[in-house]
């Protein structure tokens, strides 16, 4: 019981970070990005190769290296995301299609699906289909806390605990960027009303490019962190893209904090439902909770909704 709750909270923080990445893209650009799972996957592989590189030149040591690599996967994918947006997504989104019926949503769906296919299968060619993981000595170590009332002991996998701490730090840093800096203001303005933002002198196209890059980078960091306790293949994205969307919709679009809480909720439900449900139904439980919350609060837990007639 206690262990499931703790595991739920820890995994939830990682999911939360992953969801923030998607939330940035979904919330600011209003794009449904099917390739987000593949960005997560790329984060994992970048992290693997960086750890390999660090080991080769003998820096950081086996304990710190995976976390440094995970954080560095962020900037790498930030650049990759900007390029993807510059050459593909900007043509089917933003101001170019704002005037079109459905705001070009149909084109975006196909393009992101295409990107997702290319990255998945390209990943298969480049990385191979053997499951990989980032091994750290921490993966096999646990903090043991307790005993708590009822003689319960709490086992916490150390790799996950550190990953969770890093995730929270990154999330807080991003939140500060969004709330306190000019860049954050520009991004939020572009999200709220792209046309008005343009009139205020904000380069909306650039704002979207940065948002997409940030979204890709943040999700990649989450991927790199998850790589420390999980083995994965190029198709790992499929399992997580759904979880990401559940989290983002739960939290409410356009809210960084909301996305984090949404992801946390999903991770928590997934782990805790393991106590009462057979493993096959664990994921079904996520969707049931998802439908319940969305049914009760269509704008998400933290979202706002307003339309003017």
């Amino acid at each position: 019981m206690l262990n499931a709750v703790a595991a739920g909270l820890i995994i939830g923080c990682l999911y939360g970070l992953m969801c923030i990445g998607l939330g940035l893209i979904f919330g600011i650009m209003k794009i449904v990005n099917f390739a987000q799972g593949e960005l997560l996957m790329l984060g994992m592989y970048v992290s693997v190769y960086l750890v390999g590189g660090f080991a080769a030149i003998g820096i950081f040591g086996p304990i710190v290296a995976p976390f440094v690599a995970a954080v560095l996967a962020g900037p790498v994918l930030f650049g990759g995301g900007m390029l993807l947006h510059r050459f593909l997504l900007s043509r089917v989104s933003g101001l170019t299609t704002a005037a079109r019926l459905d705001q070009g949503a149909f084109g975006q769906l196909i393009v992101t699906l295409g990107i997702s296919l290319i990255l998945q299968n390209g990943g298969l060619i480049v990385f191979g289909s053997t499951p990989q993981s980032v091994l750290t000595p921490l993966s096999a170590r646990a903090f043991i806390l307790g005993p708590f009332p009822g003689d319960a002991l709490l086992f916490l996998n150390q790799a996950r605990v550190f990953a969770c701490v890093v995730a929270i730090l990154v999330a807080v840093a991003l939140w500060l960027v969004m709330e306190r800096t000019r860049l954050g203001k520009a991004l939020r303005a572009a999200a709220d009303n792209p046309v008005a933002a343009t009139y205020m002198g904000i380069d909306v196209d650039r704002a979207y490019r940065i948002a997409f890059g940030l979204g890709a980078g943040i999700t990649a960091i989450a991927g790199g962190l998850m790589a420390t306790y999980l083995s994965f293949t190029p198709f790992v994205g499929l399992d997580y893209v759904i979880i990401m969307y559940s989290g983002v919709v739960l939290g409410g679009m356009g809210s960084i904090l909301g996305a984090f809480w949404g992801g946390l909720t999903v991770g928590f439900v997934q782990q805790v439902s393991a106590l009462v449900l057979p493993p096959q139904l664990q994921n079904a439980a996520i969707f049931v909770v998802f439908l319940l919350i969305v049914g009760l609060r269509p704008q998400g837990l933290f979202g706002r909704s307003a339309e003017r007639a």
């Binding site: 299609t97 084109g107 196909i110 290319i118 298969l124 060619i125």
Partner: peptide, 24 residues
Amino acid sequence: IVPGIQGVVYGVAIIAIMLASPEG
């Protein structure tokens, strides 16, 4: 021949046609 190449080609194909013909 190369597992995965079919997905890449398919992905490139649908993106290319979508950019050329965004409404279908």
